[in-house]
């Protein structure tokens, strides 16, 4: 019998060595101090920050959210302080508490991603950054607001510009939207352009109607769907991309799994489908201690299955299909 404490949870994600595979999901934990009131963010494998752009962003009007069955719609509009304030205030705070950080970056143009990366890598506190997550599932102004990750060319363009600005020692993860016909094609473009890994999935586009006012619930009309309701979509996306890697159609690369994880069992689904790490998002709104709880539950489950290392379970379901 393996005990949970004996399970080796450490992971090496394209060079980013983390004590455990559990992270916050971008935009679901702000930039640290708020969540640190409930859990020690240094205990996470990594803290993933809210996607940051070049300039301060007010985000959209309200209502910005609507609850849905086992999930929610949000339309925040990437509200944030801008990269300068981020590196002056947020990043040093995360470093001061000993957190490993994955910085999520965004832009309205491919060039903006490069600008943000340039400022980030020059930051004094950059040594706490374990990796950069490139949120290419955000709207591209140059292309009618279509998200970058909807097309291989725009995905490739952003990643190669970021690649040129980031030191090689810092892995890049491209964050993909599931709202595409063939996610493997986008994954291929991102990896080919220099991403070391992928984060899957971002929210799915949805609309909710307020049936009292008979109008869209969100001020911004459309919103991103998240929470346990989307978990099967995340598992499917991870499955498809990991399967393509196993088949040699894509280079082998770590996948950070995200989408609907609320418990260790949920996390294990994504891991068995091919995720090398897990991000917890919307579940934090329900329970701020969720990331640490999920970490402990995952360790228990892995021990229960008789494995001694977290990495033994990554993608295992592909070996057990009929």
């Amino acid at each position: 019998m393996v005990t949970a404490a004996a399970v080796d949870l450490s992971v090496d994600l394209a060079g980013a060595r983390l004590a455990n595979p559990i992270m916050t999901a971008s935009g679901c934990a702000a930039n640290g101090p708020e969540l640190h009131r409930f859990i020690d963010v240094a205990q996470l494998g990594a803290f993933v920050t809210k996607s940051v752009k070049a300039n301060p962003q007010s985000g959209r009007g309200t209502p910005r959210m609507a609850e849905t069955d086992s999930g929610m719609l949000n339309s925040i509009g990437l509200q944030g302080p801008g990269i300068n304030a981020f590196i002056e205030k947020d990043l040093p705070w995360l470093r001061s508490v000993g957190a490993r950080v994955i910085v999520s970056i965004a832009g309205s143009t491919a060039a903006e991603f490069a600008t943000v990366t340039r400022s980030l890598v020059a930051a004094e506190a950059f040594d706490c950054v374990a990796a950069i997550e490139v949120n290419i599932s955000c709207p591209n102004v140059a292309n009618r607001g279509l998200v970058f990750a909807c097309a291989p060319e725009s995905s490739r363009q952003v990643i190669s510009l970021v690649r040129a600005e980031a030191p090689h020692s810092v892995p890049l993860f491209a964050k993909l939207t599931p709202d595409v016909t063939d996610i493997v094609e986008i994954a291929d473009a991102a990896l080919d352009a220099g991403a070391h890994g992928l984060t899957m999935i971002n929210t799915l586009l949805g609309i909710g109607i307020d049936t009292e006012r008979l109008r869209p619930h969100l001020a911004g009309v459309t919103g991103g769907l998240s929470g346990p309701a989307i978990r099967p979509v995340a598992v499917r996306a991870i499955w498809q991309v990991h399967a393509a890697m196993r088949a040699g159609r894509l280079p082998l690369a770590p996948i950070l799994g995200v989408g609907g994880v609320r418990t260790g069992t949920d996390a294990l689904e994504l891991v068995a489908a091919g995720a090398s790490a897990i991000q917890v998002g919307t579940a934090i709104f329900n329970d701020p201690t969720a990331p640490i709880r999920v970490r402990d539950q995952v360790a228990d489950l892995i021990a229960g299955h008789g494995f001694t290392r977290f990495t033994d379970v990554v993608g295992i379901a592909h070996e057990r299909t009929a």
Binding site: P56, S108, N202, T222
Partner: peptide, 19 residues
């Protein structure tokens, strides 16, 4: 006139989208 709003100096337009 809000900080970082689409109408604010130094900002960029906010297209339709998510999150």
């Amino acid at each position: 006139d809000a900080l970082g709003s689409p109408g604010w100096a130094g900002s960029d337009p906010l297209p339709e989208g998510e999150s």
